[in-house]
Design a protein around this nucleic acid. Structure first.
Length: 505
RNA sequence: CGGAAUGUAGCUCAGCCUGGUAGAGCACUACGUUCGGGACGUAGGGGCCAUGGGUUCAAAUCCCGUCAUUCCGACCA
C-alpha cells in the first residue's frame, strides 16, 4: 500500500506523507515550529556527527554564543539588518504579571533582544575582543545551535520558524584567506552531501542579488529534488571586512599598523533532512542512505510457531551480535533487533516506511537452513527486493552490501541530476516557454521542469524583475565555466557567464 | 502580512443546506482464526465536534470574532 499521495499525484503532500509515515517529525502546537521525532532526530544526529568530524579535521573548534542578541548589534551592519529585519523574533519584556486573570508582559527591557536568526553580529563582537594581533589569526570556530526566523509559510524540515543548524565563523588576516576559507568549507559541504547523504549537488557562486546579507561572496550547494526544483542545502560566505568594520575587529599587522580582519561564515541546517527525503524517498515512504541511517539493519524475528520461539529468538540474537561486530564505512554496523510485541508483518512495513536499508527476517525455516531473508529497501519495486541468503554469507557481506546501497543511491541521484540539466536553451523566448510548465514529478523519475544551464549577462538590476515574474531564480554561477559566447536568457544581451536557472524550495 | 479554502476520534473523512447534545473506514486493546507476510472475525476503548461570544427551549449544524492548518503571493537555511 503506497502513501496516500504519490510523487506524481501531489508532490508537496507526498513530502508530508513521507515524514508522517516514517514518523520523523510533526507540526508542533507552537505555530510554525516542528517536533523532530526520534527517527528524524536520529538522522540529524548522524549528519551532525559526520559533519562535526569534518569541521574538526579542518581545524575548527566548537564554541557556544548566546541565543539573545542586543538589537543594537544589528544596526551596525546596514545590509545585514535589512536582510533579516522582516523575520526577527523580538524579546521586549522580562516577566508576566497577573492583571484581572490575564497574564500580561511586564518589565519592559531597556533594549530589546533579538532571538538569533544567525550569529554573525554577536560573534563578531567576541572576535573584536579576542583579536589584537596578526598572531591571533586565524580564528576558526563553529557552533551547533538553534536559530529563529519568523517564517510565514512553514514547512517541516524546509522552512520552520526554529531550526537546528551549525554555523562556522572565522576571522583572517587577508581577504584571500577569508575567500579560501569560504571555498574550503563549501567543499566540506559538497563532501557531506555527496558522500554521506548520497545527494549530488551543483555548486558555485551566488549572483549578487542572492548573496547573504552583508557578504562579499556567497557560495552554495544546490541539489536537485525529484520534482526538478532546487534546494539551497548549504551556503558559505566570504564576508570581507564588512562585519569587522562594524564590530571593530582590528589587529596590529606584520607592518605594525592597525588593520580590519576579514571574516567568513558557513552553515547547514536540518533542511538537509528535507533534501534527503526529496532526493531518495519513494511512494512507499522514506529511504535513508546507510551512512546516515540510525539503524542500518533491522532484524524482525518471525515467532509464529510458539514451539520454536526460543530457538528463533536465540538465532536472531546471534545474528544481531555477529552483525554488530562488523564494520561498514569504517564504523560499527548499526543493527537493531526488533523484539517488540507486534505482528512481524507490521514491524516489517514500519521499518520499510522509515527507510531502513536492510530488513532481515528470521523464522523457523531459516534456522534449519542456517539462512535468512533480506529485504533491500532500494529494490522495493523490483524482483530482487526479497532474497534468501546464507547466515554466514550475509554476515560476511553486510558491510559491502551497505556500501553498495550507498553508492547505488548516489549514482541514481547523480544520474537524475545529470540527465536533467537542460543545456539546449539559447534564447529568452525558449527559457520562458520551458518554465511555463509546472514542476511535476513524472513516472520514470524524470521531472517535467528542472535545471537549465544557460547564459546570463551578469546585470542583477536588469534581471531580478523578470526572474520574479517567471517564478524562477539563478541558483548559482557554477565554478566550471565554459567561457563560450551566447546571449543572456533573461535580457537577450551578449553574455559569457554560465548559470543555473531553476525553481526552488 | 495580502488572497482563497479548511478545522468533527491518532489518520482520512461523512454529518451542517432543512438545529433536537456524534458516525464510518483505517489505527489502537482483548480473544480467536490466519500468516514467509501490508489478512480476517467477534467484542471493546477513544471525541465536551479548533476556540470565544451571539441567536434559540435546544447549536457540530445558523451569525460574528479569534486562532490554527493547507494552497497561491511576498520572504527565506
Amino acid at each position: 500500500m503506497t502513501l496516500q499521495n504519490t510523487r506524481e499525484s501531489n508532490y508537496p503532500e507526498w513530502f508530508q506523507n513521507v515524514i508522517q509515515a516514517a514518523d520523523m517529525a510533526e507540526i508542533s502546537a507552537s505555530p510554525g515550529c516542528m517536533v523532530i521525532k526520534p527517527w528524524g532526530y536520529g538522522i540529524w544526529e548522524r549528519i551532525q556527527r559526520l559533519l562535526d568530524e569534518k569541521i574538526k579535521e579542518t581545524e575548527h573548534e566548537n564554541c557556544y554564543f548566546p541565543i539573545f542578541i542586543p538589537l543594537s548589534f544589528f544596526k551596525k551592519e546596514a545590509e545585514h539588518v535589512e536582510g533579516f529585519a522582516k523575520e526577527m523574533a523580538v524579546v521586549t519584556h522580562s516577566r508576566l504579571v497577573n492583571q484581572e486573570g490575564e497574564l500580561v508582559p511586564d518589565g519592559k527591557l531597556e533594549e530589546p533582544l533579538i532571538v538569533r536568526p544567525t550569529s554573525e553580529t554577536i560573534i563578531a563582537d567576541s572576535f573584536s575582543k579576542w583579536i589584537k594581533s596578526y598572531r591571533d589569526l586565524p580564528v576558526l570556530i563553529n557552533q551547533w545551535a538553534n536559530v529563529v526566523r519568523w517564517e510565514m509559510r512553514p514547512r517541516i524540515f524546509l522552512r520552520t520558524r526554529e531550526f537546528l543548524w551549525q554555523e562556522g565563523h572565522t576571522a583572517h588576516e587577508t581577504l584571500d584567506e577569508a575567500e579560501a576559507e569560504a571555498k574550503k568549507m563549501l567543499n566540506v559541504y559538497i563532501d557531506l552531501a555527496e558522500n554521506c547523504l548520497a545527494m549530488p549537488v551543483v555548486s558555485g557562486q551566488k549572483p549578487s542579488h542572492e548573496k547573504f546579507a552583508g557578504a562579499v561572496n556567497t557560495y552554495t550547494v544546490e541539489p536537485m529534488m525529484q520534482d526538478g526544483r532546487a534546494l539551497q542545502a548549504g551556503t558559505s560566505h566570504n564576508l570581507g571586512d564588512n562585519f569587522a568594520k562594524s564590530a571593530h575587529i582590528q589587529f596590529q599587522g606584520r607592518d605594525g599598523k592597525l588593520h580590519h580582519a576579514f571574516t567568513a561564515s558557513w552553515g547547514v541546517s536540518t533542511r538537509l533532512i528535507g533534501g534527503v527525503i526529496m532526493s531518495h524517498a519513494d511512494d512507499e515512504g522514506m529511504v535513508v542512505p546507510p551512512v546516515i541511517a540510525p539503524h542500518q539493519v533491522v532484524i524482525v524475528p518471525l515467532y509464529k510457531d510458539e514451539s520454536k520461539r526460543e530457538a528463533v529468538a536465540a538465532y536472531a540474537e546471534k545474528l544481531r551480535t555477529e552483525l554488530a561486530a562488523k564494520t561498514a564505512f569504517g564504523e560499527k554496523v548499526r543493527v537493531r533487533l526488533d523484539n517488540r510485541s507486534k505482528e512481524s508483518v507490521d514491524k516489517m512495513w514500519e521499518w520499510t516506511r522509515k527507510g531502513v536499508p536492510l530488513i532481515i527476517e528470521v523464522g523457523p525455516r531459516d534456522l534449519e537452513k542456517n539462512a535468512l531473508m533480506i529485504r533491500q529497501r532500494i529494490d522495493i519495486n523490483t524482483d530482487s527486493w526479497k532474497s534468501f541468503v546464507g547466515f554466514d554469507e550475509f554476515v560476511a557481506s553486510v558491510g559491502q552490501r551497505l556500501e553498495s546501497i550507498q553508492s547505488q543511491m548516489f549514482n541514481q541521484a547523480k544520474k537524475r541530476l545529470q540527465d536533467n540539466i537542460v543545456m539546449t536553451i539559447k534564447t529568452p523566448a525558449e527559457l520562458e516557454k520551458y518554465f511555463s510548465n509546472q514542476n511535476v514529478w513524472v513516472e520514470g523519475s524524470k521531472p517535467k521542469v528542472s535545471f537549465v544551464r544557460g547564459k546570463w549577462c551578469g546585470d542583477d538590476a536588469a534581471t531580478v524583475d523578470k526572474l520574479k515574474e517567471m517564478k524562477i531564480t539563478i541558483r548559482c554561477i557554477p565554478f566550471d565555466q565554459s567561457g563560450t559566447e551566447g546571449i543572456c536568457l533573461i535580457t537577450g544581451r551578449p553574455a559569457t557567464l554560465d548559470v543555473i536557472y531553476a525553481r526552488t524550495y
